[in-house]
Write a protein that binds this DNA or RNA. Structure first.
Lengths: 247, 247
DNA sequence: GGAAAATGTACATATATGTGAATTTATATG
DNA sequence: CATATAAATTCACATATATGTACATTTTCC
């Protein structure tokens, strides 16, 4: 069950992140199609908690720097080592496609760092974006790091859906693809989940964290180059990952 | 009316900002005394929206960097000019007390930047902290920047409460104190709102934004020095505020 | 290795909550 | 300056939602 008002808080914040200027109650209510009275309650709650204020008279609400302060406190814990951002930055520059660091979240994989392609036609992904763990290159690069029991436990929760023609729709199909990935040396996906999207990924364990790197883009552009992109990823990881000790 | 689940989202985030490590459903539920099922729904919602993930197997949830990305986008708009942080940083260093930049939010004043005193006994304030606009030095330094009509409109919404012995409990009392502040050259408060707390504040208009600076600390320590602290604030603003154009 | 304890998940139901309509307050217009 | 129009609040009630209970899964401990 989705908690509506919890989701609404996130929507409001995303709204402000997008418009980047103060907004009045009426504007917010209209934007979302929410009743004024409900919007009033929500804004009052956020204000009362110190997360919204009124920067200038009659110009409406805007988030306080408290969001930033809180986000910083949260993120200063075990941040990704700097070389991982360098990694996807280099990969994106060299391939011209979108490169990301991905982490597990139950049956999903979450993008925790992203450098977007600059091409007009590109894979549009943002930090926080989620994809099914079994139906994507990045996700399978995570699954490769699980034990058989852990994988089984994940499989039990997956609802297998036919997202595209090549989506694996059974545990066996996923396991087969994982075995193929191992012998191939990298994970790949050709529109397994998103239409027209292809990508190459490899596991990226850091300490006891299970992450993966993925480069993805439109099938017509990246498709034929998937093997060489995968090789590039491996080389770049080799180059950037600190050799001394387990990073 | 307070929107409970909206407030809960904030509480969860504050919880993570405090403990700085992943937490399981059970831990979170126990911490807040929430039912498991409700906690489950909330965590599922935040996860689904890409704001929580599971950094390592069976270690529970933690916020994704999406919070940080969003907070950055929001805060890169009209950030406070760097000299204001320098200002409170210097003031805190020189006085040994807590110094803050404050902005209006209806009948309240919000702390939008804070440098805390390092003393063991100190005014503990964080970004986002809110105080009544009429019953604090910092708040009155904001009110001084309002027109009479704007002030009247604020007064109508204030619930006058006797927070302490010297709290102004009527419109007239507030207006009198404002007039005194003008002739005095700064705003002050001696436990008008918080017990044992005294402070000095002056208005700090920046562009069309109405802000104020305040230095506050325990009454016994800062009380006798309020006039000189106020003078110091004024001198420091003079020193740091860019002279060219309206900053 | 097996039983017990703890944790995570699903669902129906009573109730806390969102909202439409009414009221008050602020702003624009003639 | 008075009136019209728009925005912000308040409030009572119907309904969407939080939760108690039951079940499943995982982990711990002996």
């Amino acid at each position: 069950m989705i908690v509506r008002q919890a989701a609404n808080v996130l929507e409001i914040m995303e709204f402000f992140a997008q418009v980047k200027k103060p907004a009045t109650l009426a504007e917010i209510a209209d934007h979302f199609g929410w009743p004024r009275s409900s919007t009033f309650n929500l804004l009052a709650t956020l204000s009362e908690k110190g997360y919204l204020y009124e920067p200038r008279p009659r110009a409406g609400f805007y988030p306080t720097p408290r969001w930033l302060a809180m986000a910083r406190m949260i993120s200063e814990v075990e941040p990704l080592p700097p070389w991982t951002h360098q990694l996807i930055s280099d990969l994106s520059a060299e391939t011209g496609e979108t490169a990301s660091i991905v982490a597990p979240a139950g049956v999903m994989a979450v993008f925790i760092d992203v450098v977007e392609s600059k091409a007009a036609i590109r894979y549009f992904a943002t930090i926080g974006h989620r994809v099914p763990i079994h139906a994507t290159a990045s996700g399978r690069a995570l699954l490769l790091q699980y034990s058989q029991e852990e994988r089984d436990s994940v499989y039990r929760k997956i609802e297998f859906k036919q997202y595209g023609p090549s989506t694996p729709i059974s545990i066996e199909a996923v396991e087969t693809e994982l075995r193929n990935s191992i012998s191939r040396g990298y994970c790949q996906s050709f529109a397994d989940y998103s239409r027209d999207l292809a990508g190459a990924a490899i596991p990226l364990p850091i300490g006891d964290r299970r992450l993966s790197v993925v480069v993805a883009g439109p099938e017509f552009r990246i498709g034929p180059k998937v093997p060489e992109v995968a090789a590039l990823i491996a080389r770049t990881v080799d180059r950037l990952r600190p050799k001394t000790s387990a990073a």
